[in-house]
């Protein structure tokens, strides 16, 4: 081969590869440590937040999805309870599988109570975890606190590919997050266009809500129709995989010595009827689990009016205040009262 050809060949392969290698180094050393990527950033910050010294006081931790994230302001929980503090670790889309991923690390902080939130769909099974989130859990180090004996079988319903992501090495995680700059553009642009969002709640463990305003009526109606359809198509009986996963989670919390509280999160009145079979299934299962594992069930699915929702599922500011006060009161009361009778479920009312 002519030297000129070899030089062209080497340049056409070498320079793009060099560019890609420089991009990877920049990503690892500069971009990923600095930019915020919504849920991914929150997961990473949560790991940092809970790593370190065990909590000294009596801390209650809340886990849930965006309903808990938007609807629970823990600064309003501990009114009149100076010895207690509460933190909201909810993450958008967080379900049973993610509870199980997160809990070993959280339980190392010795919380006195773990409150798990449930919406009508939570017990439908182990929802797929988006790859971004799975890689974020892996990168944040949640997996390092898992018991050594855990395998894919300890996550019933979770697909094998997601489990492999959770167990992935740093190089694979870095390659996955190569699109971080594009995701960052998306988040930032979205926040700039939509005035009803705040995006810097990743570090917030008391009031991590992001929605600043309610969305318009047309959009809410559109969402409600889609939600009703989703509820209609779902099976009213919780899936075996979901129940199995919940049982394992209950055992994990019980064995750590923390109190276990289940909360059925608020459901928009316009879809409550269509969701009622799902809610009944969830209620029944959670009651059984409460009885079996010494937990408490707080039924808050019917506590908010339409005007207290920011959209079809998330409470607005008024809803957040009401829901937080009710949950705070009930959690602290039931925590003390159920020391003698831990099985009693509590219907939350205003």
């Amino acid at each position: 081969m002519a030297p000129r050809f070899v030089w062209n060949l080497a340049a056409s392969i070498g320079f793009p590869l060099g560019g890609a290698a420089a991009a990877a180094a920049l990503l690892s050393a500069v971009i990923l440590p600095r930019i915020q990527l919504g849920d991914v950033e929150r997961i990473r910050q949560l790991a940092r937040h809970v790593t370190g010294e065990p909590l000294s006081g009596s801390t209650v931790i809340f886990l849930g999805n965006s309903i808990t994230m938007e609807g629970l302001d823990t600064s309003q929980l501990g009114v009149g309870q100076p010895d207690w503090q509460a933190e909201n670790y909810a993450i958008t889309g967080c379900g049973l599988s993610e509870y199980r991923i997160i809990l070993p690390k959280l339980l190392k902080r010795n919380p006195v109570c773990v409150v798990l939130a449930f919406d009508p769909m939570t017990l439908q099974g182990a929802a797929d975890i988006p790859a971004d989130k799975a890689f974020a859990y892996a990168m944040a180090g949640f997996v390092e606190d898992w018991p050594a004996s855990w395998t894919a079988d300890d996550f019933p319903g979770l697909d094998r590919a997601t489990y492999d992501i959770l167990r992935s090495n740093y190089m694979r995680q870095l390659l996955h997050f190569r699109t971080a700059p594009l995701i960052w553009i998306n988040y930032r642009s979205r926040a700039a266009v939509r005035g009803d969002l705040r995006t810097d709640s990743s570090y917030e463990w008391r009031a991590p809500y992001t929605m600043l305003e309610s969305v318009d009526q047309g959009r809410t109606q559109f969402q409600l129709r889609a939600l009703a359809e989703r509820y209609r198509q779902a099976s009213p009986i919780p899936s075996a995989g979901g129940v199995d996963l919940l049982r394992r989670t209950c055992i994990l919390v019980r064995d750590s010595g923390a109190r276990l509280v289940f909360v059925m999160t608020p459901v928009h009145p316009d879809v409550r009827t269509v969701a009622s079979p799902l809610l009944e299934g969830t209620r029944q299962t959670l009651r059984e689990m409460s009885a079996e594992y010494g937990g408490v069930l707080l039924e808050a699915d019917g506590v908010l009016e339409s005007s207290e929702f920011a959209d079809s599922v998330h409470p607005n500011e008024a809803g957040r205040r009401i829901y937080s006060e009710l949950i705070g009161r009930q959690v602290f009361q039931t925590l003390e009262s159920t020391l003698e009778s831990p099985q009693s479920p509590a219907a939350v009312s205003r």
């Binding site: 340049a11 056409s12 320079f15 793009p16 590869l17 060099g18 560019g19 890609a20 420089a22 991009a23 990877a24 990503l27 790859a131 971004d132 996955h176 190569r178 699109t179 971080a180 700059p181 594009l182």
Partner: peptide
């Protein structure tokens, strides 16, 4: 041209879809 190769290499790295 070679600078552009490197730039495109970097952009393809960042833009290569995960799926």
């Amino acid at each position: 041209l070679f600078g552009l190769y490197a730039l495109l290499g970097a952009l393809l790295f960042y833009g290569w879809p995960t799926h």
